[in-house]
Nucleic acid binder design. Structure first.
Lengths: 207, 207
DNA sequence: TCTGGCTCTAGAATCAGATTCTAGTCATGG
DNA sequence: CCATGACTAGAATCTGATTCTAGAGCCAGA
């Protein structure tokens, strides 16, 4: 899809605009930042902004995908090593929170924009940019479920059960209502596993 | 705070505007509906809209509070009768989903606007309009936790654990990704209780 | 080397739509 | 009956997103 970019300078200014955008959106909010703001911070011209992104929403979407990629890149590495269901679930939950703590601006942006119309409208594009990874993870969940390593449940609830609480806690954090105390990721990982582990197994593993 | 409204007609037109707004927002999205759209559907004039709500965001916030009240009104009744922790948790989760199914437009609106800046900015106002109810519920959770009817956990995670999965599933539903199958509320209520019940107690109560 | 075509940058001009303003109308309390 | 404040109207203004026109820099092929 992406055609080859001829000049490196074009790519540079694209990045400058994205960086400026994250800065402005974090500081002022998406609706309140104007193209003029981004122009000033990035040093680009209006024409340049529109050349690269087409519209204000285009910036939001590109930035969203950019942050999502960072997030996934960092998760991918950790997941490849994990093989049993418990480790899989715990790793995903833990990583989600730890990553957010390490990249607060990007995380806040992702959390805030997730349901924003500007971004929701471009679902198609976002999926095609990141969908494989999620699809893959999802099918892994189903495999675990079928082999009895996870509680059998309607497929649509696995993701909500695994990440819903983390998402909710992180939202509260993103809006400044709570802090992310050290160790909170373990609390949520425990909870997620309590939710998803097969009924018969007690808390300790049976040797 | 609310000063007495002199005329019933004023109140009527206020309602007409809110109804029109819910209709337009659902149909076109919040950002895409213009004051002109709302004016046409409601039959009010621009001046009238601004007299009642001050700004476009004012409409969004008033509507948000309106829907939240509906939701809470309906929950309040059911909660008053419940006394043990398990029933409390299950009722809240179940109600959340059942109510959304019964009031899809209002539910979608609440889900979509929850993190929208327009609404987030007015947190203050929203809290003062609905805060008692939530505060009360929250303190009830803490009481249960202290008396050992719930797993002891950091206070900030109770709400996420209880409602996070439901919220996440409902978001997927609001965006048309999944359906709300009959009985799904039981699945989530079970899961919430699995997460929150004290470790030692098995599913059945020990008499 | 020259030319066409493409990416990219500039910034002025346009346009849509939110908000403000002025001028009333109407009901009520005094 | 008058003054007042809630309320309605709709024209005028203003802000900021988007579009448009022009031009610079660069590469490929003639």
């Amino acid at each position: 899809m992406e055609r080859k970019r001829r000049s490196a300078t074009g790519e540079q200014s694209r990045r400058a605009i994205l960086n400026a955008a994250l800065d402005c959106f974090s500081r002022l909010g998406w609706a309140a930042t104007t193209i003029e703001d981004i122009r000033k911070v990035s040093g680009a011209s209006v024409g340049s902004v529109y050349h690269h992104f087409g519209a204000k929403e285009g910036i939001a979407v590109a930035l969203y995908i950019d942050c999502l990629r960072l997030h996934q890149e960092s998760l991918r590495g950790r997941l490849e090593r994990k093989h049993d269901a418990e480790a899989f679930v715990r790793t995903i939950v833990t990583h989600h929170i730890a990553w957010s703590r390490e990249h607060p601006e990007a995380a806040r942006y992702l959390l805030r924009m997730r349901r924003e119309e500007a971004v929701a409208a471009a679902e198609q594009e976002i999926q095609s940019a990141t969908g494989d990874f999620i699809r893959e993870g999802f099918s892994r969940l189903k495999t675990y479920a079928q082999s009895g390593e996870l509680l059998p449940l309607p497929p649509s609830v696995y993701l909500p059960l695994m990440l819903g609480p983390a998402q909710e806690l992180l939202s509260a954090w993103a809006n400044g209502h709570v802090e992310l105390k050290a160790g909170i990721e373990k609390v949520l990982a425990d909870a997620a596993w309590r939710c998803l582990r097969p009924e018969t197994a007690p808390s300790r593993k049976v040797p």
